[in-house]
Write a protein that binds this DNA or RNA. Sequence first.
DNA 1: GCGCTAATTGCAATATTATTGCATTTAGCC
DNA 2: GGCTAAATGCAATAATATTGCAATTAGCGC
Lengths: 147, 147
Amino acid sequence: MIQDSIRILQARGYKITQPRKQVLEVLQGAQKPLSPYDIQGLLQKQGKYVNHVTIYRILDLFCSLNLTHRVLSSGGFVKCAIESKEGCHRFMVCSRCGALQEFADEELCRDENRFAQNLGFHTEYHLSESSGLCANCHKKSEGPEGV
Amino acid sequence: MIQDSIRILQARGYKITQPRKQVLEVLQGAQKPLSPYDIQGLLQKQGKYVNHVTIYRILDLFCSLNLTHRVLSSGGFVKCAIESKEGCHRFMVCSRCGALQEFADEELCRDENRFAQNLGFHTEYHLSESSGLCANCHKKSEGPEGV
DNA sequence: GCGCTAATTGCAATATTATTGCATTTAGCC
DNA sequence: GGCTAAATGCAATAATATTGCAATTAGCGC
Ligand SMILES: [Mn+2]
Ligand SMILES: [Mn+2]
Ligand SMILES: [Zn+2]
Ligand SMILES: [Zn+2]
């Protein structure tokens, strides 16, 4: 929910401004990662002008608070879908329909950390994005009509 | 070795050109990910001019053959350090000195795939970059002079 | 070695993405 | 409602990336 994000912003002393609320709303409604200019375009369609510099700055802030994430494989931004979960947040991206699912799993992090330590590395955080077929697209690709 | 990469290019019918060899050499010698323009700059220092468009195209080709990888967290390119290893290639990046280590581990892939399947996803490949301190930097940070 | 040709590179123009400094506006406070 | 620090807008510029087409070149047969 957007309200959760707003509460976090307030708790940290950040102002609740029109552009910030608007960016949150757009990201909340999106079905895929959006670039800063995507966001600007969508807002403009609703008659709301926000300078792209402002959008960059808002996304910087949101990402620093983990309210949003940048999806590196596409370069776009998404609203965090699991704000309450500890540990690193990971993504699965459907290579067919673009659907994105966010998840977290401490076991995976532990495994990765362990492996890193064998190489002498002390991990601070993980960046993890997998590509594949979502349930829907996988079903279609082997449906009654064959592959 | 660069020779391995050259053999792969030849085997696939790609020509061995000056720019391609030069890009391979620069990447081989680099200690961190290089942007296309970094590469152009380094070559220029050696008196070798290569157009940036050419470098983009060469990197596209190399990445499609997994001779190089794009490191998403920094946007730069590295030469693959473990060409013989199967499965997805992962990176650990030192947040202090930028050192990069490439590795692969099938066990990690299996774990991730299993987790994805529980979410209904059928994984094609993983993108995995961890940030942390390399052995050297970690040693320094808790050396005799204290933290 | 020489010429041929497809593959590759260079060039020029343009698009996209991102950053900076400073003027203006506004949210939150009294 | 007025005050002020925080946030936004603006303008300029930097950095990154792509496209179409002309010029060059690697690899081939001779
Ligand atoms: Mn998240
Ligand atoms: Mn590799
Ligand atoms: Zn899908
Ligand atoms: Zn280091």
